[in-house]
């Protein structure tokens, strides 16, 4: 069962870098991805937008598979900073799951 996590939504909203709200889910990114990641970034950004933190955390391997090569960004009609958004999610997972924050 998918559960909406309002704290997760707040954290995303407070971020100055996460700009996936502009995504219109056209799927150009998925079509061109060298890793062949079906989930990334389109569906993943839907989970984030809906505050489905558990869905995001379930897909950790996919999030860490992204090459950050930005081929998807070259083809994005909404100029979403896809690689930076993926890096944002990695940072979130590192803090929440792996407790990798220094403090």
């Amino acid at each position: 069962m998918a559960r909406v996590n309002s704290e997760f939504i707040d954290e995303i909203r407070q971020s100055e870098t996460f700009d996936a709200a502009a995504c219109m889910h056209c799927g150009q990114c998925t079509a061109i991805c060298p890793m062949g990641l079906d989930l990334l970034p389109r569906q993943l950004f839907l989970y984030v937008g809906a505050g489905l933190e558990d869905k995001v955390l379930e897909n950790r391997e996919t999030i860490f598979s992204c090459l950050l090569c930005r081929l998807c960004e070259e083809n994005c009609p909404r100029d979403v900073s896809i690689a930076e958004d993926v890096r944002f999610l990695r940072n979130y997972i590192n803090r929440k799951v792996y407790k990798l924050a220094r403090n």
């Binding site: 060298p34 890793m35 598979s65 090459l67 950050l68 090569c69 081929l71 070259e74």
Partner: peptide
């Protein structure tokens, strides 16, 4: 076919976490 701004990744960034996937992309490229 994929070059300049539309270049295709060598697979390198996946090497440390997913070596077989990195090798597959390198082969494709």
């Amino acid at each position: 076919e994929y070059s300049g701004k539309m270049t295709y990744c060598c697979g390198g960034p996946a090497e440390s976490l997913f070596p077989s996937k990195a090798h597959e992309i390198a082969g494709k490229r």
